[in-house]
Amino acid sequence: MSPLTTTIVMSSLATGTIITMSSHHWMMAWIGLEMNTLAIIPTISKQHHPRATEAATKYFLTQAAASAMILFSSSINAWSTGTWDITQMTNPTASTLLTSALAMKLGLVPMHFWLPEVLQGSTMKTALIISTWQKLAPMALICLSINNLSTTILLTMGALSAMLGGWAGLNQTQTRKIMAYSSIAHLGWMITIATTLTNITIAALLMYLFMTTSMFYALISSKSKTIKDTTTSWATSPTLMIMTMLILLSLGGLPPLSGFMPKWLILEELITQKLLPMATAIALSTLLSLFFYLRLTYTTTLTASPNTTPAKHKWRFKPLTPSPLLSTTIPLTTMALPLTPLITN
């Protein structure tokens, strides 16, 4: 795309999210979501590759269906209550429809099938945008309307997402699909706690954004699209690979890294609310996610490729300079645990 087109598309992407996050009227929220969707479609399909076109089509159909459900649910609510206010979604049918629509927007189980396929068909940078920025608007709507959403459905979807995100990620060799299932698992944790404390949800979302951005930029810098690619990444930049190992362990939620903070706070709150089976289920599901994070850690930092490897040796080519963004996100991804008291207060 030309610089002018890229500027227009990215501006529309940002504006759509901001409109949705700052609106109180359902129609304005819907318009923001539509702007967001229409701006990301050319970004996904700009490769002019059949896989990219397929990903763009899947994304468009899913998001259009979810937006239509949001408009339908808000119309039902306005018909019965006479208000279009986002915080006044009191009609039970409308609330259930809205919960399903926002779950589809985010990619929660059982409406998660589009996310791994779309990420796999996109470029790394587009996959990063879909995994991070595109989650902001639906999460803002969930936080605004959480008092009227179905708690049972949200808790069920959260637990299933946390478990399936770990379970389905075990079988993947593509790093983008691994990050997609990682995203589903993290969103499951956020949705589980959204029913109780939205401030912990926002803290978990921010930490997820930092960790995912760091991980994607590390993969972009090392040109690692599959697990096999990571085995030869050490020679490109040993320092970056050590940082990648820490990012992966943080994604897994191991102390004393930052990723431990949201999981710790969420489990503590679930236990306080007497939701012990839920807390146990999602804590055990983390072990599944941790397995494929550790597998990536092993291939990235603990595997020295032999000289006869069939993979292309990356040190024969000019390596990419790591993004300046990494110098901001990596410290937040690995060393933000001492900030926990600020969040709990």
Rank of each mutant, 00 (worst) to 15 (best):
F210H: 03
G158V: 06
L249S: 05
M163R: 09
M278Y: 07
L155M: 04
L290Y: 05
A180R: 02
S289G: 15
I178L: 13
M211K: 02
A159L: 10
T333C: 02
I191T: 03
L254N: 04
A55F: 01
T232I: 12
N147C: 10
L249F: 00
I282W: 10
T87L: 12
K177Q: 13
T57R: 01
A55E: 00
G169M: 01
L254E: 01
A127D: 09
S214P: 08
M335E: 05
P138S: 08
K263Q: 03
I178N: 03
H313Q: 14
T213A: 14
A68E: 03
L249C: 04
S75R: 09
T212R: 00
F72T: 14
L325N: 12
N147G: 06
I191F: 01
L98D: 03
G188C: 01
G165Q: 09
I178C: 11
P42D: 06
M179W: 02
T303D: 01
I330E: 04
L61V: 10
L267F: 06
P92L: 10
L71Y: 04
I142M: 03
T15I: 15
L332W: 02
A94D: 05
N171Q: 12
T99N: 13
H112P: 15
L197A: 13
E54S: 03
G166D: 08
P50Q: 07
I184S: 11
Y217W: 05
S224T: 15
A68P: 07
Q63S: 11
T232C: 14
T20F: 08
P256K: 02
I70D: 00
K225C: 11
A101K: 09
A140Y: 00
T123N: 08
K274F: 00
M104K: 05
I31V: 15
P322K: 04
M163E: 06
F210Y: 02
T81E: 15
